[in-house]
């Protein structure tokens, strides 16, 4: 049934363990082993406080204070320096957050272009063309020159997805990407994610509290109390 299991893996963890020391010593992540394959649309679910966000920050390379091993796109990321990790994120990981977190002073187009300009792989003109292409794919092309503060929540989230896609990352991570959207926009975002994974072989991990969203995705990983239970 699960055909993606035959694809090469994009993300792999080995016994990821993390503690918080404030206010008391407390183990949030307990020996997490997780493998995500290329083109997989994975939902991460679990009760509030079980450690989903914490795991996402570790997977995203922003949190380096953990034990165990993390590997993305064949690169072992444990023990890399902050600067190396920043460069890695830029090239290989796309983010979609619950709150849209666009840069308010910039236009839609500029927001999408920034990670690509940072990468510096393409000329400014090429970056602009690519940004337009991504915006078109998400139905946001006509809003390209608007300041992002003039967009609705659903529109902003689509711009955020376009931005996450601009560098053709190996994996897109979302922490409750539809958490702040109404059911219509949740459907829109879900459909986009599904199209990306199925048509473009994009890999996506999304934390969600939406059961329907999780059920319709390719694979559900459930966490409880710092463990992966399913």
């Amino acid at each position: 049934m699960n055909t993606t299991a035959f694809e090469p893996h994009v993300l792999h963890t080995h016994k990821i363990t993390k503690y918080f020391y404030e206010p008391d010593k407390f183990q949030v992540l307990k020996e997490i082993d997780l493998t995500v394959h290329k083109g997989e649309f994975l939902s991460l679910v679990g009760k509030s406080g079980c450690g989903k966000s914490t795991l996402m920050y570790v997977l995203s390379t922003m949190d380096t204070d953990y034990e165990g091993e993390l590997e993305i796109a064949g690169v072992r990321l444990t023990d890399k320096t902050q600067n190396e990790l920043a460069a890695f994120r830029n090239k290989h990981i796309g983010f979609v957050f619950q709150f849209h977190y666009l840069l308010p002073e910039f236009t839609t187009l500029q927001n999408v272009m920034i990670p690509a300009l940072k990468l510096g792989k393409y000329s400014r003109k090429e970056v602009e063309d690519r940004a337009y292409a991504k915006l078109e794919m998400l139905g946001m092309k006509e809003h390209a020159l608007k300041p992002t503060s003039k967009l609705s929540g659903g529109q902003q989230q689509r711009v955020a997805i376009a931005r996450a896609l601009i560098n053709d990352p190996d994996i897109i991570m979302g922490d409750e990407p539809t958490g702040n959207l109404d059911s219509y926009n949740t459907h829109v975002v879900f459909d986009i994610f599904q199209e990306l994974t199925h048509t473009y072989k994009q890999t996506i991990i999304a934390v969600t509290h939406d059961e329907e969203f999780a059920r319709k995705s390719d694979r559900i990983v459930e966490m409880s109390d710092g463990h992966i239970v399913r």
């Binding site: 902050q82 920043a86 890695f88 920034i114």
Partner: peptide, 16 residues
Amino acid sequence: MKDIAILKAMGFAGRD
């Protein structure tokens, strides 16, 4: 603060 966090998430290093 938020913008800085986003920039860093997108791959801007502390030096940038």
